[in-house]
Design a protein around this nucleic acid. Sequence first.
DNA 1: TTGAAAGCGCTAACAA
DNA 2: TTGTTAGCGCTTTCAA
Lengths: 339, 339
Amino acid sequence: MTKKVSLKDIAEKAGVSVTTVSIVLNGRAKDMKISEAMARKILALGEKMNYRPNHFAKGLRTGKTNTIGLIVDDISNYFFGHLANIVEEEADKLGYTVMFCSSENNEGKSRHILNMLVDKHMDGYIIAPTKAMLPELEKLVKEKKPAVLIDRYYQQLDSSYVTIDNVNGSLEAVNYLAKKGYRRIALVTNLTDQLQMIQRMEGYQQGLNQNHLQLDQQIIKKIPFGLTDEKVVKEIKDFVELNENKMDAIFFTSNNLGVAGLEALRSIEKRIPDDISVICFDDNDLFRLGMPGISVVSQPIKDIAKKAVEILIQQINQRSTTVEHIVLKTVMIERESVK
Amino acid sequence: MTKKVSLKDIAEKAGVSVTTVSIVLNGRAKDMKISEAMARKILALGEKMNYRPNHFAKGLRTGKTNTIGLIVDDISNYFFGHLANIVEEEADKLGYTVMFCSSENNEGKSRHILNMLVDKHMDGYIIAPTKAMLPELEKLVKEKKPAVLIDRYYQQLDSSYVTIDNVNGSLEAVNYLAKKGYRRIALVTNLTDQLQMIQRMEGYQQGLNQNHLQLDQQIIKKIPFGLTDEKVVKEIKDFVELNENKMDAIFFTSNNLGVAGLEALRSIEKRIPDDISVICFDDNDLFRLGMPGISVVSQPIKDIAKKAVEILIQQINQRSTTVEHIVLKTVMIERESVK
DNA sequence: TTGAAAGCGCTAACAA
DNA sequence: TTGTTAGCGCTTTCAA
């Protein structure tokens, strides 16, 4: 009862060799021309004895784990949490479980967790990459390990990825504000060289250009990663207070920044949209249901996740080496934060 | 370069046996009285050759995976996402990775994922249990596999758990409303026999009693699990519209219900707190920063997660069989949703 | 149509 | 202080 049932146990009971049992239990009875009767008997026995294959042994032989590794910035973040949810759901349908790690956008941890996952022989990886992972990622790519990047990618890395059109998303946001007559559109983003942020910044600049607005460094705030939530709020608060007469709208380039931004604005009693208008990259419950609702550039999270899993599993199964670059569209959702 | 380095490779290079290498690389050189020089040499070689132990082989021998399984309702949920984040962080500090699955409060999936995790030999489990898992859980407990339940537990299961004082949390919420003069406090909860919900219901009833209020089934709504978000909103909307003159406040017993509730109330243009007051079990960004802020009974998510990991790892390491029952306190946070 | 045997990489008992 | 060896449970030649 308590002892684990192995192939050998079944083989003994059935009076056959482990080989035969292995073949049958792996559904290759037909291929190997095992007799119907034998196959049925073994299958029944496996069922009855509640045989569960030993993944270690299997893995040791085959190198397969049926596990995919997921690395995100922070699983408690709205975007990544929802993404992880779909990834797990899709993976589960295909018989995979997922191991997740949060990089926390932290150099040390980034490197370390990817190594950890590689050591544990994931069959494939879905990764929101970090600069510190680059060497490891290059190794993965060189060894043709299945991997799909999400949210951002690195040009020098010849790897599949699924992202969104960040430039255009930002551009739309700025155009939208400009059309409403805003001329002094502030930007709150992260201090980083991660591509998605660079691109959102790029879209912002293009937007200003298209609308003949001057880029003003004074109303651009870049917040480093790794600060506590309170710190971020404080930074934004100080930034707005210092420059309030120089801005009439603020564009937050992420979920997190937007949430912190709302908190900051509230703390200095700025009313949205009366005192200042707000728009944000990424959606969440607060933006959707808070008063006022916050206009956003939303990402198709479900599609991103599904596509990433799809591509990854394809790579795993067929060892297809075609590198896929998927760029999905964002959707502007107008709410009440811009008047 | 591309070939994996094994103990044997190192042994050959060092001119010793694999045993010696194994011992040294596992940090047991001192115990086994391996000579300093030898140890240093092997260590250096391991480093240089970039040795990475094969987890399959190790697992096959030792049964250890250095992985813990985490089962939550839904990783994209605020409560569980934040919980998972801390679990992963704490586990990582101790050299463990975490495999997560969302049960989605779905019978079939519940059973299936627990089996999947067991098959993959997690060293331990942190589980928000579901009724469908009960047989499997009993087996786990009987076999003394390290496991800690969170959020809820089952009386018949002699297992460690970390929860909060749900009864008292609800009681405080009702008392708070009653003190403010509310007499017709509606309840929106889930149709389930999960303990945390039963207890929150219990606290609600006690609260009514203590304040000499009548329990009125008409203003109690129990929403089944598994509905789409839209469906939940619809249910709440209908419920409120049908009974609006019978209620002056609503108590939502979870995060999800609260969010859906706000959406429902907005859709029928009920103003909080002018038309109706609202209080919710669980906190989140929307409640904290939305206008108006929603008063909540908040859970100490960090403490729950940390405690769960702590207990679990203790069990894993010392195979301590002492079953621990931790019940943490909730904190009422007053905001503007009750006037 | 089935079986014997090797071996994946590691650890631990036992020997030396 | 170090080495020999068996074996964890499985898959896969190769042989029968």
